[in-house]
Amino acid sequence: MERDAVPGEMLATRGRGFGHRYLPFAYPALVITAAVIVFPWLFTVYMSLHDWKIGQDREFVGLANFVRLAKDVRFLESIGHTLYFTALAVVLPLVFGTAAALVFNERFPLRGLFRAVFILPMMATPVAVALVWTMMFHPQLGVLNYLLSTVGLPPQLWVYSPGTVIPSLVMVEVWHWTPLVMLIVLGGLAAAPTEPYDSAKIDGANGWQIFRHITLPLIMPFLLVAAVIRTIDALKAFDTIFVITGGGPGTASETINIFLYLQAFSFYNIGYASAVTIVFFVIIVALAVVLLWLRQKAKWS
């Protein structure tokens, strides 16, 4: 997205007017994209306007599905769960990822190996990871409660209690996706100029002052990119939640995505589920736009 801008502008002065000759190269991909991305979108809009259960007749109902959604308490609660989960699953990886990036920006022996180990969680298969965490969360035999007991803390119910289920799932999400934030911020640190640091050292600034007044402003654009990506991914989080709790206990961890899954593939209300899809997409785009707007604002000031 952003990084395309600079080389793109350089090319533009050279090849404007001839660029369209290259478009046929993209046609096969466009056909596939149309089939697996555009068609589903149009069809979703069509379905959302119908009362449609798999295996039954469909009936055009206009916006009735959306009206029903606005009054569906379970759906409204799922929006709350999603926002709670997302807020934590964006902020915590940003904090930890930045700290890790500051460390990996230093030169030290075996840095490449340690960095590879650090990014293993984001490459690992989510279902496999979720299985291991499920066993770790076990209230009687789980290793997490054992670790708590070694430091004198009382055992927790983790994902088995409505009060702690979402923070527990956030823990898995933070473990899983902090590496992605680290990589983005590390890219920002690598691109940062060295002069401000030299003069700050001469002025006798301490570590925190240097971070607060030099490093943080320099990496701010990258942090905002990471925030956008994290927001989109956290809103869409599915695999680990589905495997570990399936939305439970009760509906305590039912996010929009889980609600969508249950409507579509457990209850087969595909008309209703399509309406959920559209509302969900609007929420994702709206939050992404807000963050991008914040980014523009940060640029101007």
């Binding site: 395309d4 533009a12 369209h20 991305i37 989109i232 869409k236 969508l260 899809t277 997409f281 992404a288």
Partner: peptide
């Protein structure tokens, strides 16, 4: 080559859309 970044937006939409949809 064509700097057709509007086409690249399609991949962005794919990135944003939840798989379930």
């Amino acid at each position: 080559k064509a700097q057709a970044h509007k086409l690249a937006v399609l991949t962005l939409i794919a990135r944003i859309t939840p798989a379930l949809s």
